[in-house]
Structure formats: C-alpha cells, structure tokens
Simulated assay, not measured.
Amino acid sequence: MDNQNQYLFNFRGYNFQRSIVSMNIVENMDNQEIRDDDVFIVTYPKSGTVWTQQILSLIYFEGHRNNTENILTAERAPFFEYKHPSVDYAKMPSPRVFCTHLPYYLVPKVFKNKIVKILYIYRNPKDVLTSFFYFSNSVILYEASDSIETFMQAFLDGRGKY
C-alpha cells in the first residue's frame, strides 16, 4: 500500500478515498461472502450509479410497497468497498444489491465461480468529465477548479482530490 497523501491511498494500483473505504473489505476481497443471487452495479464514478441503485431498488424491493423509500439508498444498495456502520452485509436478506467502482482485477475472484448478476454501467467520457467537474465544485471535500479545462488536465494527469 503506497500512501500518496492524506486524502487518497494507493492499493494494488488503485486510488481509494481514505475516509470512506473499508480496508478490511479491500484487503480481504477474496474472502468476502458472495451469494449466487447477489447483484453488483459496476460503474466508473459519475456514470449513473445512483440512478441504477434507485431503479434496482424499485425492482428488487418492490419500491414503495414495503416502505423501502424510507431506507437510505446507501443502505438498500451499499457500495461493496465502503464503510457502512449501519449495514451488516452478512445479515442483508437475499437478493443483495451492491455497487462498486472497483476495477476488474480487484473484485473477488469468487465472481468466476458464482452466478452473480453484474450490471456494468458506462457513460460517455465527456459527460462523465462534465458531471465530475460540477460535482467536485459543489462538494467541499474536493478541490474546486476554476475551469473545466483545468479540471480535465488535472483529472487526466491524476492530480487533485478526485
């Protein structure tokens, strides 16, 4: 693990945001329990993850019929690699819906032996860049950019808190 700075850290070639990732899950990815009926939403950030979480929540949890609208999206379809103090993955009823931004080489190897459903959502890179630019300028946690050109160059160079 290469600690680049206080905000991000690099684990096996992938940068994680230190404050939200669960290192226990990431370091022991191959030991995580994966069920045959699990559903994984795999996306690059700002590519439609939340929309897909909402759509699958309506399908799998029957929308408003059983009061799932009162449960946070992050608890209905949590990010697999993130810290969720109020969610115990082992106690979640099947089928479980997870999201992840993990690259292919970091996902649990057991995916190859299970009947896991994987939805890979992608978006035009120009739209991802634009969405990420406005998102990063609205979130205090990220570094604001004065122009989309400056943001794009920092993004492509791997600089900044993105």
Rank of each mutant, 00 (worst) to 15 (best):
L102N: 04
N24D: 15
Y122P: 01
L56S: 06
H84R: 11
V139R: 08
V97P: 01
Q6G: 08
P78R: 00
D2M: 14
M23T: 12
T130Q: 08
R65T: 12
Y14T: 15
R159Q: 15
T49C: 09
F135S: 04
R76H: 10
A90T: 11
F132H: 06
A154D: 09
D30I: 13
G158L: 07
Y44G: 02
A77N: 05
R123D: 03
S86I: 07
S22P: 06
K117Q: 07
K161D: 05
K126H: 08
L106Y: 11
N10C: 14
L58P: 04
D38E: 12
P103W: 12
T52H: 03
D88Q: 04
N15M: 14
V87I: 13
S94I: 07
P45C: 04
I121T: 05
V107C: 12
Y89D: 02
P93D: 11
E75R: 02
K114L: 13
T100W: 02
N113D: 12
S136H: 01
T73Y: 09
K161E: 10
N5I: 08
F133A: 00
Q32G: 07
Q53L: 06
Q153V: 11
L72T: 08
A90D: 13
M23Q: 13
M29L: 08
A77K: 02
D157M: 15
Y44W: 05
I41W: 00
Y14W: 15
N66L: 12
D36A: 07
F98M: 04
Y122C: 14
Y162N: 09
W51D: 00
N70Q: 14
T52V: 06
Y142M: 06
S47F: 01
L141M: 11
F135K: 05
I34H: 01
Q4T: 15
L106M: 13
N66Q: 14
V128H: 02
P93E: 15
D146W: 02
E149N: 05
V42H: 00
M29P: 02
A74N: 06
D146S: 11
L141N: 12
N31A: 09
A74H: 10
D88W: 08
T130D: 10
F151Y: 09
E81R: 03
S22V: 10
R96E: 04
K117V: 02
D127M: 11
F16Y: 04
P125L: 08
V42G: 00
T73G: 00
S19V: 07
V42R: 01
V116E: 03
A77H: 03
K117A: 00
H64A: 12
D88L: 10
A154T: 11
K161L: 11
V139T: 11
F9S: 09
N24G: 11
M92H: 01
I118P: 02
Y134I: 12
F40Y: 05
S131W: 09
